[in-house]
Design a protein around this nucleic acid. Structure first.
Lengths: 329, 329
DNA sequence: TTGAAAGCGATACCAG
DNA sequence: CTGGTATCGCTTTCAA
């Protein structure tokens, strides 16, 4: 069932069928309708493969994430998939394990499939400069990472987010507000940590960083450190670099008999749906994940159109749930 | 940079280059090596698109899941992606939203790309019979769903899993063991519920189902129901249909001041990594998710080879963490 | 073992 | 506006 079958059946030439589908305005209305009807009745659809081969561009868009198991990337993938579908693209999910080599391999493979551009959510170990060596590397937009001039990016304002968190906590009477960084070493983590430290300095508030290590054990180590402090030394609130770390931290605290928010308030940063099912339900700074997907694709299309690497910085908002409470007095 | 460039540079014909890559044994060792070296030096790689068009089969494998935001599907996708990559396939993630129409659309689209087969993790509303109407529908393997003779499936033994859970709880002295079903109406949920009821009957244990509704609110409703019971009526342990429901249930319980495992033990079913970061760390029945991906692909390859729809039923195991404790006496 | 030629299913430029 | 033709990059019989 190919284009020629339709052409024969409709009594027109191949090229007319092609136009009827791809450039409808370039064909007589009557002819077009007839062709389309015949095609319909035959259950015909164009081969995206053949199209891609000829046009040298496909509708496949790679989304490269370090770990799809992390709900943040899950939510990102979900919104990205529908944003892509709305625009006629098909998202191809690639799990890089946070490795630069894998990322490049995927980009190369998908360029071979004439992917017009790609979306990368890199972890620290992915070198953006190295990215540029891959052909598709110059047609990539980066999500969830601090700006880098040469590549289009969509990020969330870390400073604003941290400010929201600190403000919320101070309104609850907290004065000793610590921070837990870590997990999978994303650039985002660093950015948020820097924002925390800067704000603490500005507010002349002691900056206590419970853990800066990366990996899933960050929450665990931070809890250990916390439990090791005397009551008087303990912070009354803790901001985690992201929701996953907050989960791990609260969980590890729980295992040590420390109760949240009774003994210490804990905030996350991400706004995952999952936080609403956590115990206690997690207060957090929400990133507009749904917007990020759509915007990333827009930026990519603009990059192709005029070669300009735009940067969009989104504003987070506060999601108050149950893991924060008034400071003990 | 195409096959002809390599051919010219190596002083051989196109077909020889093709063979050197695709059927190495069909070409003289010397020639082959020379060709490969030239290709290497030119940084040449075959166009998967052109190959697929000609061979009428590609290396794209659709994995269709209802919701990638659900960590279970995230973990499935992750293991599936690497299992696929190991075998030379590229996983294409499709998020169906649990809709039959979307599932069919994806299958159709990917058949157009000559996907050799597909993997579907259906939700209740996906009609397996309807699936067969789509061309690729007869080359699909189904994951995480009770057997259906005509389609290859890989599932986990629900009865064994429930038995593991009940046994664990009874060893801790629990006698009133309730159940919470629900979330996204998967067939798996039904299967597990049936297993619970059957086992309860067999053990002459009262079967209390706190909620059978579907959707994310199941845990919430179950907690409400639980809290409404007098202490004497309350079950001392609850088994949830899956980890996500367990999370929601514990969270909702917490919001009502009921503490786990102190006042009630709660078990999940799935064995998500995430459970280790829950508060308290979740005791659960673990499905061998990592195996499921690889097995699904094997089944698909066998289906293509001999047309036989095999069924693999995996055995779950117990993961004891901190959400279960001895029954109060 | 290697080369030649046809073709997968479409597009696009050039005539008419 | 429509048809003819070459071509995208590769595979695969068929001969030599």
């Amino acid at each position: 069932m190919s284009i020629d079958d339709v052409a024969a059946r409709a009594g027109v030439h191949r090229s007319t069928v092609s136009r009827a589908f791809s450039r409808p305005e370039a064909v007589n209305a009557k002819t077009r309708q007839h062709v389309l009807e015949v095609a319909e009745s035959l259950g015909y659809r164009m081969s995206p493969l053949a199209q891609a081969l000829r046009r040298k561009t496909s509708n496949l868009i790679p989304l490269i994430v370090p770990d799809i198991t992390n709900p943040f990337y899950g939510e990102l993938a979900k919104t990205m998939a529908s944003a892509a579908a709305e625009r006629g693209y098909q998202l191809v999910l690639c799990v890089s394990g946070g490795e630069s080599a894998q990322t490049n391999a995927y980009l190369t493979a998908l360029e071979g499939m004439y992917a017009p551009f790609g979306i990368v959510a890199p972890s620290t170990s992915v070198d953006l400069d190295e990215l540029q060596n891959v052909a598709l590397g110059s047609r990539v937009v980066v999500v969830d990472r601090v700006e880098q001039a040469s590549v289009p990016t969509v990020t969330v304002d870390s400073a604003a987010g941290i400010a929201l968190a600190v403000e919320h906590l101070r309104e609850l009477g907290h004065r000793r507000i610590a921070y837990v960084s870590g997990i999978s070493g994303t650039y985002t983590s660093r950015d948020r940590l820097a924002a925390y430290e800067a704000l603490a300095a500005e507010l002349e508030m002691p900056a206590t960083v419970l853990d800066t290590g990366s990996g899933p054990e960050a929450g665990e180590r931070a809890a250990e450190r916390f439990a090791g402090l005397t009551r008087g030394q303990r912070p009354t609130a803790v901001i985690a670099a992201n929701d996953m770390v907050a989960f791990a931290f609260v969980s590890a605290l729980g295992a040590r008999g420390v109760s949240v928010p009774h003994e210490v308030s804990v905030m996350g940063f991400d706004g995952l749906e999952l936080g609403a099912r956590f115990n206690p339900r997690l207060t957090t700074v929400r990133q507009p994940i749904a917007d990020m997907g759509a915007i990333a694709i827009d930026l990519a299309e603009k990059l192709l159109a005029d070669g300009e690497a735009r940067h969009v910085v989104l504003s987070p908002d506060l999601l108050v749930r149950a893991s924060t409470a008034e400071a003990p007095r």
